[in-house]
Design a protein around this nucleic acid. Sequence first.
DNA 1: CTGAAAGCGCTTACAG
DNA 2: CTGAAAGCGCTTACAG
Lengths: 356, 356
Amino acid sequence: MLDKYATLIKIENGYIMDQKIGESKVTIDHVASYCGFSKATVSRVINKEGSVKPATEAKVLEAIEKLGYMPNNAASALSGGKTGTIAVFLPDVKTEYYAALLTGLEEVAEKQFFNIIIKTQNNKKALLDLAINNKVDAFVLRNNGLQPFDHDVLVTLKRRGIPVVFIGKPPAESDSHAILIDNVGGARLMAHHYVQHGFKKILFIAGPEDNLDSNDRLYGFKIGLSELSAEIERLDVIHGDFLRESGYLAAQEALRNSTYDAIFAASDHMALGAMLYCRSRGIRVPGDMAITGFDDTFFSEFLDPPLTTVRQPMQDIGSIAMETVLRILEHHESRFQKIILPTQLQIRQSCGCTHA
Amino acid sequence: MLDKYATLIKIENGYIMDQKIGESKVTIDHVASYCGFSKATVSRVINKEGSVKPATEAKVLEAIEKLGYMPNNAASALSGGKTGTIAVFLPDVKTEYYAALLTGLEEVAEKQFFNIIIKTQNNKKALLDLAINNKVDAFVLRNNGLQPFDHDVLVTLKRRGIPVVFIGKPPAESDSHAILIDNVGGARLMAHHYVQHGFKKILFIAGPEDNLDSNDRLYGFKIGLSELSAEIERLDVIHGDFLRESGYLAAQEALRNSTYDAIFAASDHMALGAMLYCRSRGIRVPGDMAITGFDDTFFSEFLDPPLTTVRQPMQDIGSIAMETVLRILEHHESRFQKIILPTQLQIRQSCGCTHA
DNA sequence: CTGAAAGCGCTTACAG
DNA sequence: CTGAAAGCGCTTACAG
């Protein structure tokens, strides 16, 4: 067996590397040999099985530290253990929202020495391959609201005990873990602000008809209005797709036949679209028309006028989602099924407020 | 050996899965058994070794197809073969530029069934671990221009024959593969446009002093100016860090003691900062001051006035980088050492041009 | 509480 | 051109 340690020099209590640390491969066998226990035992302390005597655990840990040992995920995965990687399904990685999610996810994963596999296609077969061939330990799933994840696939994951955390509303089954934001609360606050401004004729540019985020925002907005028993003359709703162009078109269509005091768009991108339309028609914002959005994306602050909007903690959603999966992985449970993150009103000038 | 195929039913020429495709694990042994060759042979066709008789290759391929077989990367990696994953080092994944790079990288990787491991820390030890323990097949490296990649590490990769593709200027050694953009050409075009506008007093807001992109942009700008033997009264340079705030500060400082016709910032973010400063001081853009940038980030088009800038194909850089590594992986070479992608002048209104 | 041994699914000399 | 067998670095019953 010694030839296996050809690059090692024997020292009093084991072996030490003959080369610069990090330059050569060190395996569980090296660690075992160095500390005098079997690799089975080393494996047990690495995986925190708890069945190891504290004294020997300490020695193993010291050996690991000394040799700079890092477990080989591939080997571990192959033998049925952990893979050290989490699959993340996202519609894309370039839209600011998803890029921020990914940043949060990636940041905590990297800190905990987990890798991430990103899939931007909602692909059933790929998901199954990852799960069945033990390529990942868990999933973080975020759909684009249009093509939900296949129900059968989710059932398969559950049956195999593979943890899943959803970002945004999970599919029907109520027992999935999910990280959500307070859409209702944020829109409610916006409604209150609208009442303060005294807006009577309002256009709400919504997302797709069946989009839950959008629906919650509209719901919250209505609640907020009615809470203050505001006398609203008109609250029209036009559906867009969250993207800028649809906001432009919605404003164009709505303003053809009616007039409004204010436009509340379910996303900043659509608010920008509406703003661009107004600019093109010489409608002054906020002089002639107040416009507000939802999300607080990067550019909103720099628009002219700066956009009043509802801020959602995009990056935090990602980091909390990752923290949640990792916690489930470690404790086989999480204290919370659903975590709802707060949103807050970000008042700037597009609503008509003047800068402090 | 039959128990291994318990979930299979014997049919005339092999075995077929007893369950819904994709629901059960299918290994190289299943494929071998199904087509009647050894798994060594199956492995050879998967890895395109070329030493397999066409007829048997066809049968193996058919079996793979039939059974929906997907190789297990972990097993392959462990036995010294390919890992099917590429390491990508990026400063972050949320800045629009890097998010776009990642999109390009990810898109082609996913299409070719490669996974990506993202590292946002320029961490020597992590990089070495990935390389030495055969966790990835190749690297795509992009630094933030501040902390270059460790020279020793790069030498180690080279010695081990692990392909590396740089995004942006590679370290000194001239034989590395790199994807670059035409900084000089883009800035040169901007200079020509400045001459057309007749700007005489110009402020160039640069990146960090030793930043190669920034230096190339300044160089190209000067070239462009001198080519047309423009009579420039003044070309001042102030260094920023590419971020918005530094553009604001640079404008503030420069305008304290001098006047300018135009500001050319080495990034759109700094141009935005300068624009914001002007807005705060009541300096009209472009009426009193023309401002232009470099990058053509998402928001530039929507600023008021829309920003004239130099467009660089961010996402393409990522996809071409990934295509290049994958090509090297497959053919053990790439036809090109350096690939320089074109930039183009994007004229909008912040330079004083009026919309068509 | 610990170890010897089998096995995970591949690849790769080595033989033929 | 193809196969049998060893081995990659782990994990996990099974014994003790």
